[in-house]
Design a protein around this nucleic acid. Sequence first.
DNA 1: TTAAATTTAATTGTGTACAATTTATCTGAT
DNA 2: ATCAGATAAATTGTACACAATTAAATTTAA
Lengths: 144, 144
Amino acid sequence: MANYEQLRLRNQLCFPLYVCSKEVVRKYKPLLDELDLTYTQYITMMAMWEHQQLSAKELGNILYLDSGTLTPVLKTLEKKGFVERQRSKDDERSLIISLTPEGSDLQDRAAHIPEAIGKCIDMDLEDLQTLHRLLHKFMDTSIK
Amino acid sequence: MANYEQLRLRNQLCFPLYVCSKEVVRKYKPLLDELDLTYTQYITMMAMWEHQQLSAKELGNILYLDSGTLTPVLKTLEKKGFVERQRSKDDERSLIISLTPEGSDLQDRAAHIPEAIGKCIDMDLEDLQTLHRLLHKFMDTSIK
DNA sequence: TTAAATTTAATTGTGTACAATTTATCTGAT
DNA sequence: ATCAGATAAATTGTACACAATTAAATTTAA
């Protein structure tokens, strides 16, 4: 009978990635609840705070999300008053997303979140920096 | 006007975790399609291959999934013939999940997957080992 | 120049994730 | 012995995530 050591859960890279990703989102939840944002809505707003205005296409490239995911997220964020959606005059296919004043104000209320998250992750800074670096390396070498 | 450097997407730990996790699942997809498994079904089968028999509760603890997620996954895996679901005689509340012979056979057909995934991740072994170690450290220090 | 190919969002359908609630069963203290 | 609390799974409702398709607008090439 084969042992299949390489098929054990703890020997995979995928499984801890999957678990850690969900766990981090879980940590954000109480902080994001105060802003009435889900995690996906939050990273969308982070992109908007950085760029003020983006096409849906550009937003998808930044967040690695397709229109099937983004369309409802953007409609929800518009309903909440944080962004506006309007077709480009130059190219009617393109949907331009713009940060509203209310969306911009939200950044102030989100400013404390990164530090609050940092405090509940009990790892030393060096390990966190290494982890950060390796995840970006993984993204750069593995995507597309 | 504030700069909010700490709110930039690329300075977060959560975002690369989220992107890498989804990206890895995407890499599994063509391999898992051949076995008619989704990623969640695959990690469930990995746990079953290791243990042959587990309660739904134990499975949830291993996979970090609750009954809301697991119940439909287990019903699907039963429909595909890879596991059996039956109430415990000792405790009718408990649902015992057992690997079927078909489920066991599936392990042979999955045996090549870890190596195939390894080949399409273009990072050196040392970085991958460090990443693996730090993700487990993160799980150990951050969950519960 | 106009028909074919491409591009962009939206839609549709399937499958998670997870919080909150419900239902059934079991345990323990009186 | 019984019932209050605990436990386990299922259910319900919301929100992604993504493949595949559709629809509309634009670009390209014969």
